[in-house]
């Protein structure tokens, strides 16, 4: 009799488990389908529904990971990090743990908290469980440097993966194409307008030089004619204004130029680069 009761009990629980599992799998497929069709809002709803009814927490990792991806796709980066962190907690294998951690890094790159992304890369690198995944860590570190506008550092990270890495070449080219803001300012201190010419703004540089020469002449001329007060006022109000303006312009032009160079590379990465992106 006891054996029979056990058989019945086993049958009962088995049917219950299989039925529930089947139902949840269908729901997961449905949510995944919405996710694949980029209907992220509805996908989140269905993943959350699945999570609510999945009392055994069987799909917890997949659900949190996917919700994180949905939020990331919708540019809700704080929410994305929250769910990737939950996925990290419910990871069952080292691979799942690594995937959720890299997703957190990638989201940090996107939300421009590059320092945090770099810190997480360092932590990941120190973890012995991921010693075989150095290339991936360096890859995302390189991306973090790109978004932090540190192209030379990015090139170094990609070099650690492969000295001919496509992104290494791009980062090097971008780094070389940039101009030095300090140099532009310093040469403008020596010769007003030179900084603007250095950044490629020839007309502006020449105009600046001209104004400085003219106002300098007026200042000196006033002193020569013994109109000392005139000389002081012209020097202060006119000459110094143009002199300071030339230095400020040099700085702004250099920053503008660097921004243009960075944006050009970022546009390439966004539209033409075929590899993995944050």
């Amino acid at each position: 009799m006891k054996i029979r009761l056990r058989v019945i009990f086993f049958l009962f629980t088995f049917v219950l488990a299989v039925k529930a599992q089947d139902r949840l799998s269908i729901q997961l497929d449905f949510a995944n389908n919405l996710f694949n069709n980029k209907q992220f809002y509805y996908a989140i709803t269905e993943y959350k529904r699945l999570q609510f009814f999945d009392s055994t927490k069987t799909f917890n990792y997949e659900i949190n990971y996917r919700i994180g991806e949905c939020y990331k796709a919708g540019a809700k980066y704080d929410d994305a990090v929250k769910f990737f962190s939950l996925a990290e907690l419910s990871a069952r294998t080292d691979d799942e743990l690594f995937d959720s951690k890299t997703q957190i890094i990638r989201t940090n790159i996107l939300r421009r908290t590059s320092d945090r992304a770099l810190q997480l890369c360092d932590e990941l690198e120190k973890d012995q469980r991921f010693s075989g995944k150095k290339d991936q860590i360096n890859y995302w570190r390189g991306w973090a440097y790109i978004f932090a506008d540190k192209w030379d550092e990015a090139a170094k990270s990609f070099t650690r993966i492969n000295s001919n890495h496509e992104l290494k070449k791009l980062a090097e080219q971008t780094g070389k194409a940039k101009v030095s803001v300090t140099f532009a300012k310093v040469i403008s201190y020596i010769l007003p307008g030179a900084g603007a010419i250095y950044t490629g703004k020839f007309l502006s540089g020449l105009m600046s030089l001209g104004w400085n020469l003219l106002s300098g002449y007026w200042t000196i001329n006033s002193f020569v004619e013994n109109r000392v007060f005139d000389g002081v006022v012209v020097a202060e109000l006119v000459w110094l204004r143009f002199y300071r303006g030339a230095i400020q312009n040099a700085e702004e032009f250099a920053q503008e130029k660097n921004l243009e160079v960075s944006n050009k590379s970022l546009r390439y990465l966004q539209n033409e680069y075929k590899g993995m992106k944050p």
């Binding site: 058989v7 019945i8 049958l11 009962f12 049917v15 219950l16 039925k19 529930a20 139902r23």
Partner: peptide, 13 residues
């Protein structure tokens, strides 16, 4: 019971 339990379980579900 062998016949009824699975059936009722499914129905209940």
């Amino acid at each position: 019971l062998l016949v009824i339990v699975p059936l009722t379980t499914i129905n209940c579900q």
